[in-house]
Amino acid sequence: MRVMSYREAVIEALREEMTRDGNVFLMGEDVGRMGGVFQATAGLWETFGPSRVFDTPISEVAIVGAALGAALVGLRPVAEIMFVDFTGVAMDQIANQVAKFHFMTGGQAIVPLVIRTQGGVGFGDAAQHSQSLEAWHTHIPGLKVVMPSTPSDAKGLLKTSIRDDNPIIFIEHKLLYQTEGPIPEGDYLVPIGKADIKKEGKDVTIITWSKMVLDSLEAASLLEEEGIHAEVVDLRTLNPLDLDTIIFSVKKTGRAVIVHEACKTGGFGAEIAALIVEKAFDYLDAPIQRIAGIDTPIPYAAPLYRAVIPNPDKIAQAVRGLL
C-alpha cells in the first residue's frame, strides 16, 4: 500500500483515465497551466497538453453546457466547477439540461459527464465559497451525487464516475485535499452506490459523508474510551443511496445519528431520517438525531464558522444523549 494525499489521488485518477481513453478530457477555470486553485489537476497540462486540458473563461454556464454538448457527440468530459457554490450560476444547464437529456429524449441521448467540484467550510472563505450544497443536486433525478471522504475512495470513485455513462456531480471537500491515506496498487474501482462502514460498532449508527466522516470517526474514538461502540457508515454516494447498508446497521444498533456539514433544514439528512422511519421504525430505541450546520450563511471569522458546523465534540455529545 502506498500513502497518498486526497489531492494526489484525484490527480492520479484523472491521469489514469485520460491515459486509458482518449475521449476523456478536462475543462474548467484554471485547470490547465495553473493546475487548479486547489492544485487538484496539477501536472496534467504538462502531461497531456492543451489538446486534452482546457482552461476556460469564467463562464460556468458555458462550461457545463459545452461539456454536455461534447458528451452528446461522444466525448467523456470532466468539467470542473471551482466551488460548489458556483454550480448555482450553471444550474439551468445542470438541472434542466444535463440531468434530463437522457430521459427527455426517450433514452436516445447518453451523457457521460463528470462535473468535479468541491465544497465545505475551509479557513474563512465566507458565505459564497464554503457551502455544502449536495441536497440541491440530490433533488434532481438524473444526476448521481458522489462525495468521497478518503484518498482511496476519491481515486476509485472518480475513475468509476468517468467510466459511468450518466452525469455525475463529484463533490470533493477543500479540507480533505491535504489528508493522507493508503491507496491500493493498480487499477481499482470503487462502485457508485455502495456505502462503506469505516468503523464497526454495536451501540449506535453514525451515518455521514465527505469530511464529516473524519469528524465522526474522531467522535467515535472519544466515545470508545467511554465504552460506547459507534458504527460509522460513510455513504460515499448520496445518489444512488445504499439504503440497505443504512437499514442493516440501524437494525443492529437501534440508534441513528446523521451527521452532515450542510445546514439542517432541507438537508439530505432529513431524507435519510425519513427513510429510516419508513424502513426500520420498529427497530429504533431512541429518536433519530441530526447533527448538521446551523441554518445561517457561512460566516467569515473562525470563531463564527466553527460555531456553525458540526465537530467531533458536538457529535459525541449527541450520541451520549441517545444512550
Binding site: 459545452a66 454538448g69 452528446l72 468530459p77 439551468d92
Partner: peptide, 15 residues
C-alpha cells in the same frame, strides 16, 4: 440553453 450545448458539440467535432 441550446447555445452552450451547440458550442460543446462543435468543440467535440474539432477534438
Amino acid at each position: 440553453a441550446g447555445v452552450p450545448i451547440s458550442v460543446g458539440a462543435a468543440f467535440a467535432l474539432r477534438y
